[in-house]
Design a binder for these strands. Structure first.
Length: 476
RNA sequence: GGCUCCGUCGUCUAGUGUUCCAAGACGUCAGGUUCUCAUCCUGAAGAUCGCGGGUUCGACUCCCGCCGGGGUCACCA
């Protein structure tokens, strides 16, 4: 059996959002699952749209998501180069073939003339077809005019690995441009040549190309090539509205998610779940499971909406599933500045306490800051507390002093603190909701914290007593 | 407008003719776990399967029409 070869072929015009990376992920999964090859190719035939730094950014995105490619612009491979602007000679050969066989001709019209035809079609509420204006005696192609495909309009029926059986009539076939007047090929032509020369077996691409497929089929015929298997992915839609996810509408760079502390495992799991499932009710998939279970015929035909809440939930699940020491390695650069001088043992303990409430790594500073520095006393924490605001400062101060005395000679193990805190409930006659809230606010100056005893144990006696004293001074 | 794809809880999905007055997950709400936040557990609300016709003993599942949404009709990909 022929080796399965898939490719991801972006144009270096910007970053990759979730919709874009999904196409890459599916192509990667199919290759890995079949022991095939995954290829990266840059489609840079429109120099005007090129964005500086986009190539590197694209490769970084793939690397950071763990979608390693076997052949590509930077690493080469048996069919190098993998950048279209470096393959101009290849396209020229095939274009000449087309001319020689009478299947391509120079476009004699000016841009304005073609536009006039287009406007006319639009005014008549018809689809524009260039071939309705196909010149009878086109000039010799000199490379300065666009070269057009002389299409052979006919109906097509084909099978898309995702969409199933599809068919169209001859009215969608047209004389599209093969070579632009600047000497570069169009995507429509170049990708066909490259995929053939690079022996690509499966083409995955977005739904926006579906309408062009019959034209490609027509071109494959004219070139005497066998089309690869085509798999059309439904769109990933933006959270609001009915539009597909796009940079214009604020789609986020996948690298931003990585930067915010979403794990690659999560991203792979989540992005795969947008439009694919294995037919069961499983939600969490390791990448190994994804590779083993992925299949094109389980890819959804309808568009999927991107839901960031679900992403956060999934990342939290992945974070909780990680061994503490491994999590520590991953979050190393997410600690607040104030943690710089603390030991890794201390940070590991903090991490142990906040692991279960972490949704993404960037939340670490706000969740952990009070473990590293003394936050200023914030009176609103008490005045805004439903339980505490009913009491006078005098009452609160009294309980705080009682508490201070009780814990002053504790060994500050979590167990001992728990005992003493329980004892305090009896001596003060207060509910935990009152007493513990008070102590928690005093020792953390934060609206929320991990369990009180564990938090205090980790903070240590000196810090706790000092903070209780600061709070007391404010109440007095 | 032509062509084309899609249409199950707010969201992601399960469901390929009789087991579905439709299942799971996220989110939401309520309760429990000696404080908060989170986790975990329990429960609730939430889709007349876009609408209307067929076919069939039986349809979310097949067929037709309609409606709604998307895509495309570039010397962009």
């Amino acid at each position: 059996m022929k080796q399965i070869r898939t490719r991801f072929a972006p144009s270096p015009t910007g970053f990759l959002h979730v919709g874009g990376i999904r196409t890459a992920l599916f192509a990667w999964l199919l290759a890995r699952q079949n022991n095939g090859a995954f290829i990266l190719r840059f489609e840079d035939t429109d120099q005007k749209r090129e964005v500086a730094g986009a190539r590197k950014h694209l490769m970084d995105s793939l690397h950071q998501l763990g979608l390693d490619y076997d052949e590509g612009p930077d690493i080469g491979g048996p069919f190098a180069p993998y950048t279209q602007s470096q393959r101009l000679a290849n396209y020229k050969i095939w274009a000449d073939k087309l001319v020689a066989s009478g299947r391509a001709y120079a476009d004699p019209y000016s841009i304005d003339e073609v536009q006039a035809y287009r406007d006319e079609a639009r005014a008549n509420k018809q689809a524009f077809l260039y071939r309705n204006h196909r010149p009878e005696t086109p000039p010799i192609w000199d490379g300065l005019r666009p070269l057009r495909f002389k299409s052979d309009p006919k109906p097509y029926a084909w099978t898309d690995a995702v969409m199933g059986d599809l068919q169209t009539g001859p009215e969608v076939i047209d004389d599209f441009i093969v070579m632009k007047s600047d000497g570069y090929p169009t995507y429509n032509f170049a990708h066909i040549i490259d995929d053939a020369e690079m022996e690509i077996t499966h083409i995955m691409r977005g739904q926006e190309f579906l309408a062009s497929v019959p034209n490609y089929l027509n071109m494959y015929e004219a070139l005497g090539l066998t089309p690869p298997i085509m798999a059309t992915m439904p769109h990933v839609m933006a959270e609001n509205g009915n539009k597909k996810l796009s940079k214009r509408d604020g789609a986020k760079d996948v690298l931003d998610y990585i930067r915010d502390g979403f794990m690659p495992e999560t991203l792979r799991n989540f992005i795969a779940s947008l439009g694919w499932n294995d037919g069961t009710e499983q939600e969490i998939f390791t990448t190994e499971e994804l590779v083993a279970k992925f299949s094109l015929d389980h890819v959804q035909r309808s568009g999927a909406r991107f839901d960031e809440k679900r992403l956060e939930w999934m990342n939290g699940t992945w974070i909780r599933g990680l061994p503490l020491d491994e999590l520590a390695v991953r979050v190393a650069k997410y600690w607040p500045d104030e943690a710089a001088s603390t030991s890794s043992e201390y940070k590991l303990s903090v991490l142990g306490l906040i692991q279960e409430r972490l949704k993404f790594f960037n939340e670490i500073p706000e969740l952990s800051r009070f473990f590293f520095i003394d936050l200023p006393v914030n009176p609103e924490l008490i005045s805004g507390n439903k339980q505490l605001k009913k009491f006078t400062s005098y009452e609160l101060l009294g309980w705080l002093q009682t508490a201070r005395n009780e814990i002053a000679d504790s060994n500050f193990s979590a167990a001992d603190l728990t005992d003493r805190l329980n004892r305090l409930l009896e001596t003060t006659g207060q509910k935990p909701g009152v007493l513990f809230s008070l102590i928690r606010i005093a020792t953390t100056q934060s609206p929320a914290s991990p369990g009180l005893a564990e938090t205090m144990a980790l903070l240590g006696k000196d810090r706790c007593l000092e903070r209780i004293d600061s709070q007391s001074t404010h109440l007095a």
